[in-house]
Amino acid sequence: MKRYAIIFILIMAVLSGISEANGLKGKIQLDLSQPPQVEETDPVLEKYTEIMSEISITDDAYEVVEQIRTTVQDVQSIAMDVEVSEIRGQRIERMFFHLLGSMESKVVRVEFLEPSELRGYILVADQEKMESRMYQPINNQIAVRGLEDASKEVLSTLSISDLETFFDFSEYSVEVLEAAEEDEVMDYLLEVDALDEILQVRVKSDTWFPYEISVYEGDAFVGTMTISNVVFNPELSKEELTRLPEAKEVRM
């Protein structure tokens, strides 16, 4: 969530910059009737500066983070298998799904394979239409929801479509915990301090795409996301991404 806070602050900073720039257009008028006032500091910019000043990143970590950022920067579409293991109380809940996403058409498609309670479910989140469609095998129906009413799970799924932001760790304090070489490929373990949570990110130098992200809240291990079978820029049409089995639609 802090990641979104930083993005929000960044947007606000850019917006305030734009509005300041717009204010400079036209004639300059000086009001000499009043004494000059002390310039007020922008609290948003102040907060942004404060956060940015706290960020520390080592040179080798910066190099890895930049390589990841450069890799995801040019990705227009992606296909990958994702496994999420999450600790809930005494249980470990495991979810496995195939994810397809197109940055161009702003559509993410998630095909759930595990656990069996979710096998056969297909989620299509369309950011342009601002709606999500979920095929449900239990009753052979498609549940249609507006994204404004969507759950945080749908919204976080959509945020994956913004790969550049999702895998950009340059706004955080990052350090390299491990670096091992095998068959001329470097395997890095980064620790990313995302303010309210710690991410441990594994990435190899042959792809520069994270293949494992472990999340910690304080010292407590929360879960792991493992990414495999990544294909960059596969040909994915919007029709292909949004196609669902023929079924009755139910608008929620």
């Binding site: 979710l118 479910y121 989620l123 979920m134 549940a143 929801r145 009413d149 759950s151 799970e153 749908v154 139910v250 929620m252």
Partner: peptide, 10 residues
């Protein structure tokens, strides 16, 4: 009436 129960249920 239909009430949503998270992402996967109603």
């Amino acid at each position: 009436t239909i009430r949503s129960l998270g992402l996967f249920g109603y």
